[in-house]
């Protein structure tokens, strides 16, 4: 059986990278009770309640709204002040450039 050496190394590395993410998804599908009491590789009773909570509870989704507001404002201000300056530096020479 011929094993491709590159494929083997890449598979090991990607498994190493995915382990904590797999654990994260595993925990996100369990209830709080189950996380703290039992240890299981896959939730005993699959539940999407956690996802419902973060999308409907204001104290959770306000975080998303704040982040989006911040990012949009940041982008608008950065672009609007940087573009004229970039144009000036590329097309003109002036004192102090």
């Amino acid at each position: 059986m011929k094993i491709n050496k590159s494929a083997f190394i890449m598979t090991l590395y990607i498994i190493f990278l995915m382990l904590p993410i797999y654990w994260l998804i595993n925990m996100s599908l369990k209830t709080n009770q189950e996380i703290l009491t039992t240890f299981s590789l896959w939730p005993n009773d699959l539940t999407f309640d956690n996802y419902m909570v973060i999308f409907t509870d204001p104290s959770w989704y306000n975080g998303y709204l704040n982040s989006i507001t911040y990012v949009v404002m940041n982008m608008v201000i950065s672009l609007s002040v940087a573009l004229p300056a970039a144009y000036a530096f590329s097309r003109y020479t002036f004192m102090g450039d």
């Binding site: 609007s80 002040v81 000036a88 590329s90 097309r91 003109y92 020479t93 002036f94 004192m95």
Partner: peptide, 20 residues
Amino acid sequence: MNKTHNQKAWFMVLPVVLLV
């Protein structure tokens, strides 16, 4: 590229300078 010499370009750089 040929750059023209124009002191009024400072006005375009001013917002960045103030913000920084």
